[in-house]
Amino acid sequence: MKRTIVTRPAMSRARRVVWTRWGITLLLVLLLEAACRLGFVPKLAVLPPSEVIAAMVALLSTQEVLTNVAETFSTVAIAFTASVLTGFVLGVALHGAPRLRRAIDPLLASYYAVPIFVFYPLLVALLGLGALPLMAIGYLAAVPAMLIATLLGLDRVPPVLRRVARMHRLGRVSTAVLVILPAALPNLFQGIKLSLAYAFIGVIAGEFILSSGGLGYAIAFAYDSFDNRTMYGLMLFVLLSAVISNGLLSSWESRLQRRRGLQ
């Protein structure tokens, strides 16, 4: 009884925030549409959103584009999965080796200051042409995010919870599974989300600038051949994919948080 009274106004505010967000998005799209139709923006440079959506739908029914989508998505999926696993394992290991961690810390802190795809030529020389070097770029872009999140999560496990585990005389494995992992879960989730985003960014950027296949390349190619319909259609698809996959992970995450009575 009490709870409904407490959460009612909070819910309606949260709902208002969400509706406002959608409203603003819709408004921006409509404004852009109007600006294009009324000629405020050069028709050559920017397509009206309605045409972009139509172009995207049309493109997604062509075999060629579907092949590109499959190629890019599988590359991202592999890079993402591998990076989450590696990042987690490395994070756990590094957490247990404080001296090594102190030594590596400056490198980790500066990692994202270096544009990773400067290593593309090296990766091609090592791994050959094709999907492998792109996968490697996505992987390299995503591993440290997961690693850092794992370290942070383990750091933030309240020491008193470890002592509770010892009071219950839990072994190493039970302590890890029943206490440490659940306590670190919010940070781990953050790492997984970032890893997905960075793997996607890495792969698309690699394709865009350097490779000769996949969605990123198709966009760059369309730009070079002044094919704005294809370019905008694919662009919308890529952006939507990123936003939707991120949104799915976020909603999963907030379900988890709600389960802990947060939010």
């Binding site: 989300k193 698309i204 865009f208 760059a220 694919l234 890529v238 952006l239």
Partner: peptide, 19 residues
């Protein structure tokens, strides 16, 4: 919205910027 912007591959937007 900003977080979403942060996580999208912004490189694909570059042609628009150029245009």
């Amino acid at each position: 919205m900003l977080t979403s912007l942060y996580t999208i591959p912004k490189v694909t937007l570059y042609p628009v910027i150029l245009l």
